[in-house]
Design a protein around this nucleic acid. Structure first.
Lengths: 233, 233
DNA sequence: ACACCGCAAAAGTCAGACTTTTTATGGTCC
DNA sequence: GGACCATAAAAAGTCTGACTTTTGCGGTGT
């Protein structure tokens, strides 16, 4: 799918991280650095660096005389973008997608409210442009173009909130939205009501109406949750 | 302050990570692995592993022929617990504290609403116990004991939400709350109104009243935000 | 001004030796 | 038989030195 022609370290990290988050090596499994290095055909230096990174993601714990133990899921750094990507690409994609959507439903409305207070003129303009772009591409199966505007819209709202932690969720939201277009059932054009809501959010932010922006965004995220309930059991 | 007698790697990681998040080595600075190793008196192996971890936190980027470049703050993995701890211990503690409190104000109400739907009998009991513990220790300068119950309360709400990403914020909230007791102005006993709110949230969750649990928790977080506005400019 | 080439700097990779911690084993003594 | 201690072994941790690969930069030539 994606080109992973980067260095050895990145390749091995990706491979092991993906394997662990996918459930091979279930929690409690014990791996040995040397053995892994040999199996994957890399030097111990590389493998050690990989293990250290996985350790910082709380995916594994390394202990002397024992080895590298896979930690239980509850202890993973589930906010690490890399971990999120692995999980979205693996078996518990549905679970991860739901977690993220619930998170969105909590964060985005508040972010929109803050954006209404803090957004610069430039950000307002960009937001409106995205909303109009969504309208323009909402019919006729132009899903890819629609997605670009949709992602841009949410990214700007999160950024304009002025909260760095909200802003950093932009990538995650992008991942969720594009995932919906690519993997999930998205044959038809997007829901017209949702499109309208986006336009109205842009208006509310432009007018500095925090309450309205928050309320409308909450409607959007409720819609996203409902959509998820329809697709997943 | 804390005992950091662990391995060399952990010590060096802590030192460098702390320095970077504190603003020594401002974004754009270029470091060289070998030089760092020599300066800190460790081998290149250790330093390389440290750099790899910092790289996975998006604090730095390592490029051949250039060196290790410190990335701009907007690109850091601000959800990494380690990064959060460093920043809370450094110069932009106020900024970080505000980000986290705003995040709480978004997440906790939604989490409480979900907890009202999903909490087990056991979790309800534990929640009530914490709330009562808060009441019992809310007067007479028993701040440390109060803190334990306060942290427990919020941790349980986040955990009972059934959302793994919410649950993982338990540590962060604990950090914020205990920071408030330790560093910030907290001479007096906690606000009685806040204590009452916690008790009522526990009741709402027990009764499965999601709307009420969310509303009451929102009041709590609004209070936390207001408190922050009073203390910080 | 521009394209090309080669040098050198820095990260990346590998291999091997040695140290330290921790667990398990096994033996001794009560 | 059980508790306790010494010993050995296993695995991670650390150090060192050599080699490879990429890439920015300066120089050269047209």
């Amino acid at each position: 799918m994606t080109v992973q022609a980067r260095g050895l370290h990145a390749q091995v990290l990706h491979r092991l991280g993906h394997a662990i988050t996918a459930g091979d090596h279930p929690p409690g499994s014990v791996l040995r650095t040397d053995e892994l290095a040999q199996d994957l055909g890399v030097s111990r230096s590389v493998m050690r660096e990989v293990v250290r990174v996985l350790e910082s993601m709380q995916l594994v714990a390394s202990r002397r005389r024992v080895g590298v133990t896979v930690r239980p899921v509850e202890e993973w750094n589930v906010y690490d973008p890399q971990v999120i990507r692995w999980r979205l690409a693996g078996a518990d994609r549905p679970r991860q997608l739901r977690s993220l959507t619930v998170l969105r439903s909590a964060v985005e409305p508040v972010a929109a409210g803050l954006a209404a207070r803090h957004a610069s003129a430039e950000q307002c303009a960009e937001l409106t442009r995205c909303a109009l772009g969504m309208v323009a591409t909402s019919r006729g199966g132009r899903l890819d173009e629609y997605l670009v505007h949709d992602v841009g819209f949410h990214r700007i709202v999160l950024g304009a909130s002025g909260n760095e932690m909200f802003a950093r969720l932009g990538d995650v939201v992008a991942e969720v939205l594009s995932g919906r277009t690519r993997h999930e059932v998205m044959f038809e054009d997007p829901d017209p009501a949702a499109v309208t809501l986006h336009v109205r959010v842009a208006e509310a932010v432009r007018e500095g109406d925090a309450g309205e922006a928050e309320r409308l965004t909450r409607e959007i995220t409720v819609g996203a949750l409902r959509e998820l309930d329809v697709l997943a059991p």
